[in-house]
């Protein structure tokens, strides 16, 4: 069973083709980085992967479940960290997490145990009573990652999750998610335009003008060049 599989996915906004025949696979336990300049189609791909809207052409499979035929099964196995913050700032950490748990059908002691375990993993135990507004940017992001894991997804999608964070926090969060994919066998798709978040052993997808320009490990693709230089050469734009 594959973690994430995308076949021949295309999408157009009127006359503008945002995605054009994109196909790739990400195996379980793999950290896959999706790199692309602005306007490459990353946001559209994420919107389709999270079923914000559906594509007339192509196929998406999450942990073996077809997004078009069994959307609820597919969504149940998927965790998402959106680029925009989606926490309710005026509610406590506890309220935010139990709201999410309930949206996934979890309640009571079972939900609570999962919430506490998720916070523990992200090194944020004992913060349940704090208002989200009082947390710093890094902790809010950690909280969103903890939240995305409450329902034990098989596939984790993160859309530029480190935007606006300082270098140390960025590194810590990137390392943590790499660790999750290795230790928990989680399939991770990490969209970014920052090449320093990608490790050599990671699978790398380079999206350019709606098409998948390259798919391989970062080490293979960059050859002798630094990843930023390779990306720049390929897309003709600064990473």
């Amino acid at each position: 069973m594959t973690g994430l599989r995308v076949e021949n996915l295309s999408y157009a906004y009127g006359a503008r083709q945002a995605l054009d025949g994109v196909s790739f696979r990400v195996e379980p336990g793999t950290f896959c980085a999706l790199l692309g300049p602005n306007g490459a189609g990353k946001s559209t791909l994420f919107a389709l992967l999270t079923r914000l809207f559906t594509a007339p052409q192509g196929r998406i499979e999450i942990a073996g479940h077809d997004m078009a035929r069994a959307p609820r099964k597919a969504l149940r196995r998927m965790g998402v960290v959106f680029q925009q913050p989606t926490l309710d700032l005026d509610l406590t950490v506890q309220r935010n997490l139990s709201y999410f748990a309930a949206l996934h059908g979890l309640r009571g002691a079972r939900a609570q145990a999962r919430i506490e375990a998720a916070l523990e993993r992200l090194e944020m135990p004992g913060r349940l009573g704090e208002r989200v507004r009082d947390l710093n940017g890094g902790h809010r992001r950690r909280l969103e990652i903890a939240r995305s894991l409450i329902h034990h997804p098989k596939v984790l999608l993160l859309d530029e999750p480190t935007v606006g964070l300082d270098a140390a926090t960025r590194r810590a969060i990137t390392a943590h998610v790499h660790d999750l994919s290795r230790r928990k066998g989680l399939t991770v798709l990490w969209a970014t335009h920052l090449t320093d978040e990608i490790e050599d052993a990671d699978q790398l997808l380079i999206l350019h003008r709606g098409k998948l320009a390259q798919d391989g490990t970062a080490r293979q693709l960059r050859g002798g060049l630094g990843l930023a230089d390779h990306f720049l050469r390929l897309t003709g734009e600064a990473a």
Binding site: K73, L75, M78, V80, Q83, Q84, T86, F100
Partner: peptide
Amino acid sequence: EMGSMRLLLTSPLPRWWL
């Protein structure tokens, strides 16, 4: 606009029920 709608819509429950 703030994104929390996306959170709601990625729930595995039917969208009409949400």
